[in-house]
Design a protein around this nucleic acid. Sequence first.
DNA 1: ATGAAAGCGCTAACAA
DNA 2: TTGTTAGCGCTTTCAT
Lengths: 333, 333
Amino acid sequence: MRITIKDVARRAGVGVGTVSRVINRSGPVKPETKARVEATIRELNYMPNEIARSMVRGTTRTVAVVIPDMGMSVLMGMVQGLNEVAYERGYTVIALDSKGEADRERRMVRVAREKRVDGLVLFGTPGTTGVLRQIRKWGLPVVVLDRLLTSSLEDVQVPQVAIDHIGGARLAMDLLLRYSRRPVHVAGPMNASSALYRLQVFGDMLAEHDIPFDQRFIEQGEFTYEGGYRATLALLERVPDLDGVFAANDFMALGVLRALAESGRRVPDDVRVVGFDDIFMAALSNPPLTTIHHPTTEIGRLAMNILLDVMERGQASSDVTLVPARLVRRQSC
Amino acid sequence: MRITIKDVARRAGVGVGTVSRVINRSGPVKPETKARVEATIRELNYMPNEIARSMVRGTTRTVAVVIPDMGMSVLMGMVQGLNEVAYERGYTVIALDSKGEADRERRMVRVAREKRVDGLVLFGTPGTTGVLRQIRKWGLPVVVLDRLLTSSLEDVQVPQVAIDHIGGARLAMDLLLRYSRRPVHVAGPMNASSALYRLQVFGDMLAEHDIPFDQRFIEQGEFTYEGGYRATLALLERVPDLDGVFAANDFMALGVLRALAESGRRVPDDVRVVGFDDIFMAALSNPPLTTIHHPTTEIGRLAMNILLDVMERGQASSDVTLVPARLVRRQSC
DNA sequence: ATGAAAGCGCTAACAA
DNA sequence: TTGTTAGCGCTTTCAT
């Protein structure tokens, strides 16, 4: 049998109200009584039932995080940051995996709602905007992570936190274009907004540098080593005189490096390569990869702080917070 | 204002008991009434309050996972498996990060308890046994992951799931010793049980192969690229004629490869290398790493299934489940 | 400063 | 087949 507040009250010879008051410092208690109650709590090893508290308070001090892919290290870095701040501020997080499927995302949000979480962290996916409309009806505080929404702000008004995708990509292209006259782009999947930003910047900056755009300078693939490898092979065939590659992320960049090596190109002498994310392996490739650092933990921390602020101060927000990217210059460019 | 079961009952013109019965299929309801109630539920977009349910049922359908390091991909693979099964079986998981600190681990377990989780997944750490004693007093179902406890089984009786550390290490050493006459071991941190298993097998199998043991064949380091790199440098100095390296994990093995390359040794011609875990990068190193595959998701799935079985069937268990490791032969050995 | 009592939203036992 | 009601463990008035 579990020990409840009643047990404590009886044993200490006081009413349950008094015990509640000492637990929560929510009202005056004579020091002497307080001491007695506290002693009893320790003696009985009493632990308040958070479920019961949640019930009466109507709040759970829990937030749910809906993740499209628990296998991606970049996302997990953000989750780690989210977790840290949540714990520091007295919250617990429930992790829900949507597998990137829109209807699963919807189901996860529903689970979160049933569990009566006080707030929600949503990693942006193509389906997110739809989900948000639903959530707004509930008045559940949300923050969107990693991806910027494309709908008009009046439509879904929600704080968003992400790396400065554009700025980061520009950093990469700026550097690349210092050396490359015939740059190409190894693009990510076209349903990933991060891939789209990079693609867009690639095109824009070609124009800024008066390099005529050609569709053949771009090859798309999965966000993986294999994807980068295959894309590069195709590019090498189409654009034999390429001398610079902007890869949509580091996994792909690693594949780029391999394909280049196999084709006999030296990096950086013959071809310059820049990646994105600064994953663990970026420093260890051959040559070490020049890339854009993605401050994932910082983004996670920031997002959770924003969410909890919204929840606690009750003031809605639709601020878009862009966390600056940083160029990490190694040897591939 | 939130919609409660009362609202539904009133609107449908029935009692709350009836609504409860249709939600939970927990009693007879005339088909006609049932239809009306269900219509009302949809109309009002009613969603049962799980907190209230938990309150009366005394169960939360939630389990907590205490993770020592959210940055480690091997651990996160297990978490993914845990999550999958939890969701499939109707549970939610709370993720708690202990940062590998014993007292933080204790605090996390306390949080879990306060949240009234129905079960607990503990990644084994040096502090785990102590925590378990506490938990047992509560009668909270637990499963220990990744590490096998060393205390006597009567002491802490708890199901455990882990890779077959010994078998895996033997697989690695078996292969290595087919080629290597002067093998060395790049060991992990001595407070990590996985490192200890590998160390032990290394010593045992030297003996089995009549290779005289020498303390100098072993160098210890962090479970990182740097750790493996530095350890190998030291080893190279002490044992210039080494011709085989068993690395305690793949991160280290990657460092080993680098150190070997820098010292002018060719892999596998001059030196054979075997790692452990089969991380993403193992297939992509130069040369591709021969290693032991660590079925993390499978382990996670298994562990959660065991835990939920214990929770639901109520039968305690202290089974130790060893998931077989598998040798992945690539080019480093 | 403190105790008694009214709920929070739900399930389950009991009557009808 | 149904409606009514007593809690689940806690917080929070409201008296005292």
